[in-house]
Design a binder for these strands. Sequence first.
DNA 1: TGCAAATTTGCATCGAGTGCGAGTACGGTC
DNA 2: GACCGTACTCGCACTCGATGCAAATTTGCA
Lengths: 221, 221
Amino acid sequence: MLSVPYPSPVPPTPSEQRPSLRERKRARTRQALVEAAADLFTRNGYDATTVADIAAAADIGTRTFFSHFTSKEEVLFPEVDQRVGAAIEAIAARGPADGPVDVLARALRHPAVAASDDLVGPLATLRLQLIRTVPAVRGRALQLQQDAQREIARHLHAAYPEELDEVGAAALVGAFVGAVGGALDALLDGGEPALAPDDVRERLSRAITVALTPWLHRPGS
Amino acid sequence: MLSVPYPSPVPPTPSEQRPSLRERKRARTRQALVEAAADLFTRNGYDATTVADIAAAADIGTRTFFSHFTSKEEVLFPEVDQRVGAAIEAIAARGPADGPVDVLARALRHPAVAASDDLVGPLATLRLQLIRTVPAVRGRALQLQQDAQREIARHLHAAYPEELDEVGAAALVGAFVGAVGGALDALLDGGEPALAPDDVRERLSRAITVALTPWLHRPGS
DNA sequence: TGCAAATTTGCATCGAGTGCGAGTACGGTC
DNA sequence: GACCGTACTCGCACTCGATGCAAATTTGCA
């Protein structure tokens, strides 16, 4: 549960300062949208909630919603960047004795599958449930996961330029994420539509164990 | 083109006979939509082509499009079922000496990653290009891939009930598909937006080799 | 020939998402 | 503290994907 220092949006980036009033205000609005959306999705369902509803609940013009999020689904994935960042940090913080597999295994323990977990906050449970029930949300989650994979693969290759070429790194990361994702999917399959955070946490841990066992005994590649 | 004496069973799918006139007609219409869509997407681009355009080009009412395909993206994936079917066949046709890994490796050689390849027909190249450039199409492709994974995992578990439990099978399939997908993604990364079928075929083959190498030497799980 | 089921299609409607342009708030300056 | 450039807000009009509904047409079959 590492916290990233500053969100630093797009503007000139006050290279190491407290965000300006304007930025704080914008962040607050954004947060209000996320919370309003979570509340409405929970109470009325995803499809039954319109963007206009969300904006109204956050006391914001409908049009403004789309200046914070490019689509309705996006509001469910507010902190993707930080997750990928955590995985990349894990790669950077590797020990001299660690091989690619070790590093990846450790990286997955923290930020995990990039979109299916994150058991923190009120969004987490809701998000997981919507991923499993709303096609549009699932599609978006899978896209973000793929983006994260690409990013991680790039860094992994950079960390082990001699052992892993770009394709090999991509294959390895894909195998890891695919294995954990598949296992988690199977484990979640039996559960209720709305799973308790602790239950999810437990199952995720089990999924990672199952998925990684084949590797931990013999370093692939 | 031989005609078979028909005992005329039930309306829903004469499961092993020549399709009825109604069904043939419907299939023809469907095919016309696919071809019209492919043509328009190629010439004008995906976003610039509306569903109404497609329907008009196929000389069909706009509303009817949605009785054949549930969404605009769907028209790019007309034969998913057959692909998954091929993979499942490969599992069913396994030899006595084959382990799960062998079977999967063979299954992937034929229908492959379910959505990123299929190098046959005029749709293939176009589809691959659109998957890489249009978010909506990519999202849909990833969903179909995940569905296929689930299905294959279920069958693999059924084929090896003792060696693989459900979660293990899902993890294994996820690892395979993830590895191939990741490798293919990396290999395609350098290429042009529109890749020649032969090029894609060659790269896919290479991706599978790279992805599967770690397993081929020692059966995981 | 005639009826029941399936298909096609037009029409109305909803909601996501975008371009445009005016209004408003903020940041930095003199 | 007033001033101006810039970023953010937000209403309006509009396009397009998608769905419900019901009438018209076609096919299957007795």
